[in-house]
Write a protein that binds this DNA or RNA. Structure first.
Length: 222
DNA sequence: TGCCAGGCCGGGT
DNA sequence: ACCCGGCATGGC
């Protein structure tokens, strides 16, 4: 089937249209991990404020967050929304990191790609997208990250059925592309860029979309 | 003003 | 195994 060719062609076209996206917008692997948890169902600009608060407080390290009391952590990350639940999620990850890997990301990241993904999925508060984001953007290992934009874009271009789940969507891309972390990194970033620009939940701008000539539908995609 | 943003969990069917 | 409510701030 032509899916692999199509997905590669879509990538080439998006890269040409938007240029490299330079993801992840974080300075260290640890900052990427924290950002991945904080950005769950939340605008990145809000996450930046929360991360800046943690930085200013000198707490953006495994040790810093490990020692920080939960109420203070929640207060610092307030701008990212869902701050009570996210504070617990950060804590559960950090505690787990210390219990199992001496608080050292390098030890955690020494695992092979799929083993690392499975490990992360055992942590409460880390689901498929967050796990994949950490594996790809913090550990730099080739797993394809899917999200609401990926789903919406693929659905709108009739590449998937509505009931398609996360793992199935992920497999669609991984089976169609070479297993290359650099490629997966750029592809997901480009899909987010495309989604933010032309494929929002309401007011899609189909006529200006770089994929406008592909089969698509404006209805639904929710 | 209301809706949305780079999800995930827990409880009820 | 699904389905759904809850979680919450800031921007347009």
């Amino acid at each position: 089937m032509g899916t692999s060719k199509t997905l590669k062609e879509i990538y080439d076209r998006l890269l040409k249209h938007f240029g490299p996206q330079h993801w992840w917008p974080g300075e260290t692997p640890f900052e990427v991990v924290i950002g991945a948890i904080l950005t769950q169902n939340t605008n990145w600009s809000n996450v930046e404020k929360a991360i800046n608060n943690l930085k200013s407080a000198g707490l953006l390290t495994p040790e810093g967050l490990h020692k920080c009391a939960l109420p203070r952590l929640a207060e610092l990350i307030k701008p990212s929304g869902y701050f009570n639940i996210k504070a617990k999620r950060l804590k559960s990850f950090i505690d787990w990191l210390f219990d199992n890997y001496e608080g050292d990301l390098n030890q955690l990241f020494s695992k092979e790609t799929s083993a690392l993904r499975e490990e992360l999925l055992t942590v409460k508060g880390i689901g498929p997208e967050t796990a994949d984001s950490i594996v790809l953007y913090a550990a730099n290992k080739p797993t394809f990250v899917c999200d609401a934009y990926t789903y919406r874009i693929c659905l709108r271009h009739r590449m998937i059925a509505e009931e398609t789940g996360y793992d199935e969507l992920k497999t669609l891309f991984e089976d169609a592309l070479p297993r290359d972390a650099k490629l997966f990194n750029e592809y997901h970033a480009l899909l987010v860029r495309l989604g933010k620009t032309y494929c929002k939940k309401t007011k899609p701008l189909c006529d200006q979309c770089p994929l406008e000539d592909l089969p698509h539908t404006i209805e639904d995609a929710g």
